[in-house]
Design a protein around this nucleic acid. Structure first.
Length: 645
RNA sequence: GCCGGCGUAGCUCAGUCGGUAGAGCAACGGUUUCGUAAACCGUAGGUCGGGGGUUCGAUUCCCUUCGCCGGCUCCA
């Protein structure tokens, strides 16, 4: 019998008879590995453990600790779900069921909706199938034969997929009653699934096309241990507690009102304070960096949006135009045309460039009714927008300054993790893009060079650029690890040409400037939402709507408490006096729930020593402080915008 | 926009198999004057999201509309 030589990751090699399965190879290494292995990688290709090795190849086993391990495990869990569905609901037709970042889902076509109760039943059935330890059996069909088979089973969605995607001979996996057109690999059997949970059922569309069949998507997740699953479920609970919509109401920060309409934000006084702090900081930074603050109208002639091209490529995101006298006006969905008109208001010299126009510009975008989400996705929002008009050779310096500015934002607001993406054109489809190839090369080169020079790791995303230019997006990662897209730095080859922008260069001739569009916070609303969730409502002192609350122990300490609060207020500190007829404990509790950073207890002892007893929101009683020391300490915290204190 | 779920007091929620509603917290009044996360007593508060229909009678059943939630799609 011919033999094959497999090479292990450590370089060791071993001979086996040809046709030996990966599992047998694992067993030869040790029973532990055989029990742990979920799949294998032979010659760099992921395969089942039942895969027979036919020629010399490097081999490597996928275990729970491998990067691919969880993905395969969850993919198999999705098959397990489908198998359970077919047992209990034979009228359901499987669509697709991939693993996701946090679990898996499976889509089904079915007339009747799945209910919460159905999920419980399905989970029970899945447990049964786990106990039955059904194999994930890999089978092959040739295309015509396979389509006939799936047709006979009535699986019209699968037929469509096979028709579109299958090779002449394709693989499928059978688990119980469920047969799936699937590339694999899968774990050996359902008994390997240790902790699986169904989470929700939601609507979806066949192949993501909203005009196609409506499907029901069952979401679930799976982990290698019960503990990991519980941790994940706890994290969901934690995220719920941080939900900015809940905290927005509890802390009286903002509201969205039925009478006004969805997606429109009312900033309450406490939210307003935070916004003011954010904006004041930002404006000061903008000015430091050579930006000029401008203001532009909220509605302008529709004609302007025809020039910019928005009526062509952005129409479905714009509110309908409003008739005014004999003309039509458009509520602005973007600030760029306004800034361009300022640039164009007179002839520009190269000496004026780069010209950086910044505006906290409120824009209105029509969002389809099902997509709004608290502060994160709204119909009216304020961008910390700026447009930089410059000469091509100034690009790199401008990009660097934008990226550096973005990092300053992250640092100031207490985010220490981020992800950078560079969206470039798809080189195979030059016709999709405005601007010349040279323009694009220069712009993409400037972005890449800048990121390299700044030693910023980034993900290169070819084909992700918008048609008018390449861009850098920065996603910040919040306290519980969720990424949020905020900062964007985009080139625009389109608008300067459309509007015929010019500057007179040193050579005395007119040239077209390059335009950079950038937002750092993105939208003030979304940024606020992210901040609320990041801090779970417990803002750093400089942002806290109420920085300190004074708590007189009883009525006879009220006069002193009032003096203390006056003194703090004179020091520019946002202080409240809680003189309600409640016990101290009750008032402390309320202040804690309102996440006030500092509680200042004032009673006989404090009067005597001209101070307060400080209680911190995070660590509790911090002991006595004389006012002369406390106020400067607090002032310093605020002035330095301390995130940790 | 689409699929599914849901709208009862300011908030969180109970309830009515059709006979027009209840709790806790919050609010308000009083008693209490208190030392680091909830004192006590009382009062008031709801056209049960809006409109239409069925019915002697609708918060409950049906239709429709608005909104919210989870997704899909899209996105700052």
């Amino acid at each position: 019998m011919p033999s094959v030589r497999v090479t292990f990751p450590d370089g060791a090699t071993k001979e086996f008879p040809q046709g030996t399965t990966a599992l047998e190879v694992a067993k030869s290494v040790g029973p532990r590995l055989a029990a742990d292995a979920l799949a294998a990688k032979v010659d760099g290709r992921l395969v089942d453990l039942s895969h027979r090795i036919q020629s010399d190849a490097p081999i490597q086993f996928v275990t729970p600790s491998s990067p691919e391990g969880l993905e395969i495990y969850r993919h198999s869990s999705a098959h397990l779900l489908a198998a359970a569905v077919l047992e209990l609901f034979p009228d359901a037709h499987p669509g697709v069921g991939p693993p996701t970042e946090t679990g898996f889902y499976y889509d089904f076509y079915r007339e009747k909706p799945f209910t919460e109760d159905d999920l419980a039943k399905l989970e029970a059935k899945m447990q049964e199938l786990v106990k039955a330890d059904l194999p994930y059996e890999r089978v092959y069909y040739n295309k015509e034969e396979g389509i006939k088979l799936f047709e006979k089973m009535g699986e019209f969605l699968k037929c469509e997929l096979i028709q579109e995607k299958a090779d002449p001979v394709f693989s499928a996996y059978r688990t119980g009653k469920f047969l799936d057109f699937c590339r694999g690999p899968h774990i050996p059997s359902t008994g390997r699934i240790k902790a699986v949970k169904l989470l929700s059922v939601a609507g979806a569309h066949w192949k993501g096309d909203e005009h196609s069949h409506p499907l029901q998507r069952i979401y679930g997740t799976a982990f290698f241990s019960k503990k990991d699953l519980d941790d994940f479920l706890n994290q969901i609970e934690e995220a719920k507690k941080r939900d900015h919509r809940r905290l927005g109401t509890e802390l009286d920060l903002f509201s969205i009102q039925d009478d006004a309409g969805p997606g429109l934000i009312f900033w309450h006084p406490k939210g307003g304070i935070i916004r003011t702090e954010i904006e004041d900081w930002l404006r000061a930074e903008l000015v430091k960096r050579g930006y000029a603050m401008v203001y532009t109208p909220h509605a302008m002639r529709l004609h302007l949006w025809e020039i910019s091209g928005h009526t062509d490529f952005y129409r479905e995101n714009m509110f309908g135009p409003m008739p005014v006298e004999n003309d039509r006006y458009q509520l602005k969905p973007m600030n760029c045309p306004g800034h361009i008109l300022i640039y164009k208001s007179r002839r520009r010299s190269y000496r004026e460039l780069p010209m950086r126009l910044a505006e906290l510009g409120t824009v209105y975008r029509y969002e389809r009714s099902g997509v709004m989400h608290g502060l994160m996705r709204v119909r009216g929002f304020t961008q910390d927008d700026a447009h930089i008009f410059c000469m091509p050779e100034q690009l790199e310096a401008e990009v660097e300054s934008c990226v550096e500015f973005a990092f300053e934002v992250l640092k100031t607001f207490g985010f220490d993790r981020y992800e950078v993406e560079l969206s470039a054109r798809d080189p195979n489809h030059a016709e999709h893009y405005a601007g010349t190839v040279e323009d694009w090369e220069r712009a993409e080169g400037a972005l890449i060079e800048t990121l390299k020079r700044m030693k910023v790791p980034y993900k290169y995303m070819p084909g992700e650029a918008v048609f008018y230019g390449p861009k850098i997006d920065i996603k910040l990662v919040d306290a519980i690890g969720r990424p949020w897209q905020l900062t964007t730095v985009q080139f625009d080859f389109n608008l300067p040409r459309r509007f015929g922008l010019e500057y007179v260069a040193a050579d005395g001739h007119a040239h077209t400037p390059v335009m950079v569009h950038r937002a750092l916070l993105g939208s003030v609303e979304r940024f606020f939402g992210v901040l609320i969730e990041h801090y779970a409502g417990a803002f750093p002192v400089w942002l806290a709507p109420v920085q300190a609350v004074v708590l007189p122990i009883s009525e006879k300490h009220l006069t002193y408490a009032r003096q203390v609060s006056d003194k703090l207020r004179e020091g520019g500190i946002r202080v409240e006096l809680d003189d309600r007829n409640e016990k101290l404990n009750a008032r402390i509790r309320d202040a804690q729930l309102q996440k006030v950073p500092l509680m200042l207890v004032a009673g006989d002892r404090e009067i005597e020593r001209r101070g307060v007893s400080v209680r911190r929101r995070d660590t509790g009683d911090a002991g006595f402080q004389p006012l002369d020391a406390f106020i400067p300490w607090l002032r310093e915290l605020i002035d330095t915008r301390a995130v940790k204190w």
